[in-house]
Design a protein around this nucleic acid. Structure first.
Lengths: 225, 225
DNA sequence: ATGAGGTATCGGGGATTCCCCGATATTAAA
DNA sequence: TTTAATATCGGGGAATCCCCGATACCTCAT
């Protein structure tokens, strides 16, 4: 750290990056009412945001994940590489551990959900400017830790699962019940249930429909099948 | 329900419905700065929104499409049926003609994209209160007209279901159990099970994962949700 | 080599859900 | 007015979900 003086400071300069102009306007209205915060610009596009930062580096960037051209995670990766002093607060709709882990891996210091409480936004900014990380309260840190530990990076959200667990997951998503799965794999129903419980823990998903949606997302099954 | 009298009026009372609390806060901040507009409430849930409206009908509802429990289009359908004086402004991320057509069919008078310009929000509200329709500038009216004329067919797979059945299906696909669904709809668990059984018969799908895949296919829920 | 940790295999047991049966009230259609 | 469809419930048994704990194996590091 060099001049990273995160002590008390006049005003923190923030850049808004989100592809929804209305949402940007809303966030700007919120932040403008916050003491010690100044929104110095906004962008609806990742590349444009990078240009802006090159011209005039802000203290923090409020970054949406889904952006046209260059998505938020790529932007974060670039920033943490070339502008390590710029704090990165990710704004996402997804609470899944794999998303959070990916964001942190990309260099974000904070992760907020779009349906976080307003107070959390202020909280997150305060934490970031104090040099701390901030994860939205609705997120299970332990599960995220496990994702980070295994170094899951790309699409490999499913990489954290063992082959056996993936197999069970697929069978569940295909609509097979525990009885049928047990017979097919020549194991006890109890074993199948144990696998299901373990992979649920690991993914942070605790109901069958959630598993099905996850399995579809990672391409383990499709909606026809 | 009183007269429509969309002439000159003191303040227009608006209800915000969106499942992202931060976005609601932002929109509220924006609308609060608008002359003649008062946000009288917000909700992150379709059913909750309906309750609110029953207690205290607003002049307009700013409605997100994707909502947990009961999605925005169903809410719009209900409102246009039972509260025709309540103006409906849809807020969506999708600019596709089929989405717009569906919204208009459901009874919306306005359709805004989340990346619309801020001015369009004011414009849309003004139009609605003047009794006119408003479509976001980025939308091709002609294409939408064509969809409306031909009576789009892609959705017809779900048309075989009753509104109640679609609602139950959505809740199931979101991962809510019978107990939770029953509580939310103020009916018996047995009723929920009956609906599930009936819609399963009708679709020829006899397991929950299959229902989830179907719900995703017809766009009732998505893999993130 | 010994112990720690992850994986795969089971069981008990209670709460919940699933899935069959039937019943009633209301409404829409024939 | 009969018929059909819809929405609402209940009984009851089978299957499941979900918590607990246990054992065996394998790897890896101390």
């Amino acid at each position: 750290m060099q001049k990273t003086s995160y002590g008390q400071q006049s005003t923190r300069r923030i850049l808004l990056v989100d592809d929804h102009s209305l949402l940007r306007a809303g966030m700007r209205a919120l932040l403008d009412d916050m003491a010690g915060i100044a929104v110095i610009g906004e962008s609806g596009d990742g590349l444009e945001a990078l240009e802006f930062i090159r011209r005039d580096p802000p203290d923090a960037v409020l970054l949406d994940v889904s952006l046209p051209g260059m998505n938020g995670l790529e932007v974060a990766r670039y920033l943490s590489q070339h502008y390590p002093d710029v704090r990165i607060l990710i704004l996402s709709m997804h609470s899944g551990a794999e998303y959070v882990a990916r964001a942190l891996n990309a260099g974000a210091q904070g992760y907020l959900l779009k349906d976080s409480a307003f107070d959390e936004l202020a909280e997150a900014l305060k934490a970031l400017f104090a040099g701390r990380e901030y994860l939205c309260a609705a997120i299970d840190r332990d599960v995220v830790e496990r994702f980070l530990a295994t170094g899951s990076d790309a699409i490999s959200a499913a990489e954290v699962l063992t082959p056996r667990q993936r197999q069970i997951l697929q069978l569940i998503a295909e609509g097979r019940g525990p009885r049928e799965i047990a017979d097919r794999l020549n194991v006890s129903v109890k074993t199948v249930e144990a696998h299901r419980a373990q992979l649920m823990d690991r993914l942070g998903i605790h109901n069958v429909p959630g598993l099905v949606r996850f399995a579809i997302r990672i391409g383990l099954v499709n909606t026809e099948s």
